[in-house]
Design a protein around this nucleic acid. Structure first.
Lengths: 253, 253
DNA sequence: CGTAGCTTTGACCGGCTTCAAGCTATGTGG
DNA sequence: CCACATAGCTTGAAGCCGGTCAAAGCTACG
């Protein structure tokens, strides 16, 4: 499958963002030749396709050039929790402490383009004092999102959780030019949304209905329109200004 | 307050572990003089004392030399979620993406000794290709624990959650020589355990009773004895071998 | 000895899950 | 072009898990 045409096809659909210059966000990717090398290692995955299975082999760094990618873990009986959803221009570090295996499974939620450069990055000596800079903007943002989500899953009601996850996705998509004003596309089934925030798909459906009935949002299929952003932020218990600063890679602001 | 005497006093209580050589686990701390510098910046906190408040100033790296430290986030109405519990020899990176403020609050759950070296570590150029090594063993382990916990909080029953958290603490304490055979001390109130796994303190109490009634554990106050480790691992849905590899800093194994 | 904080136990109830059935949209093969 | 299958969404009914409220025991400590 020709990667170039796939990239082009995807980019023709949504608002255009050229990933190459924006990859400059990534730690150690200020060098343009390196960025080109990353692009060259890109591969396209179909929606639903497995990128890595838990405990399997993986590259240390994955760059999401386009699409939605879910990282998840599973209990023996099949109950599944989505740990995080990576959006275009996010960076994933699926390597576990032992250095060989992935600590999570990775699924493409939509058709996705993922770069997994192995050779060039191993030789990449991270020059900056990475730790004191907070682990690189993209990884720090992922951690902040994770903490916010743990807080809602652990303490929030279903209404608050769904409100939160919609707001999180809206803010992140807006930042990368993939929202259309107050509208955006949630490229997840209600089943998957439930796995993301610890609810059954049936209850996700009910809560979405209630959010519509309350005039906070409206939706047709996966297309969401935020009608009352402030009200949504209040439900999610989010201060929008601080929230953006924390869950977005710094360079996005 | 004289740090040395506090350290000594604590170390006189539990099984002894000299933190200085084991700090060699930490990324960039192989140099003995640096380690001594870290020790010199240590400060003692009383149980319940705030180390950092959410959004406050913080050092980029905190070394837990002794004690239990909870990192937490809160909703506006006071509901609190403990994001992670750091034990002796763990490393915390509370700095958020913006690089100035802490993304979480930090409380000492017990009397604790925490080193927060600011000067020497800023000048520390991380030499190894840190990313490809998985972010340093301690931080990678913290992330793995977090993923495991999200899975249980999102998908597990109360019984599974409590079983999991007891097992997690038991495994981690054993690794640093702070368990006594099958016995260990949970230095958290049931209220705090609940905040850690998203349950009310009342229900934590009930589940603990049930674990005792089922012969899995026994406990007096905060002193827990694991009677049936395999059964506990089954409840927690954990493969002990893999689990240890993943949630412990690599050098511990 | 009294107070404060934590644990334990009981009673009640409501939020969420589960099960089930019907609906819609999309795709497939005759 | 229609019959049929599949996947996801929606809605209802029933039941249980876990939260909340309340009161009583237990320890530690001043």
């Amino acid at each position: 499958m020709d990667t170039r045409t796939c990239v082009d096809r995807i980019y023709a659909v949504g608002p255009k963002v050229d990933p190459v210059p924006r990859l400059a966000w990534c730690p150690g990717l200020r060098d343009q030749k390196l960025r080109a090398e990353v692009m060259r290692s890109a591969r396209t995955y179909r929606a639903g396709e497995t990128i890595t299975s838990e405990g399997g082999n993986t590259a240390p760094l994955l760059f999401i050039l386009d699409g939605w990618v879910a990282s998840w873990k599973m209990l023996w009986d099949g109950r599944r929790q989505i740990i995080d959803v990576a959006l275009p221009l996010d960076v994933l570090t699926p390597l576990s402490a032992c250095g060989k295996r992935a600590w999570c499974g990775l699924d493409a939620l939509t058709i996705s383009v993922v770069a997994a450069p192995s050779m060039p990055l191993v030789s990449l000596e991270v020059p900056a004092p990475l730790l004191s800079q907070g682990l690189g903007p993209s990884i720090a943002a992922a951690r902040a999102r994770q903490a916010e989500r743990i807080l809602r899953i652990g303490q929030g009601s279903a209404y608050e959780r769904v409100g939160y996850v919609l707001l999180e996705l809206f803010v992140r998509l807006s930042a990368i030019g993939r929202a259309n004003g107050n509208r955006f596309r949630v490229s997840m089934t209600q089943q998957r949304i439930g796995e993301y925030i610890g609810l059954s798909s049936v209850h996700v459906c009910r809560v979405l209905s209630r959010l519509c009935a309350d005039g906070i949002i409206s939706h047709r299929d996966e297309e969401i329109e935020v009608l009352e952003l402030d009200a949504l932020a209040e439900i999610a218990d989010v201060n929008l200004g601080h929230f953006r600063e924390r869950i977005l890679p710094a360079a996005t602001n």
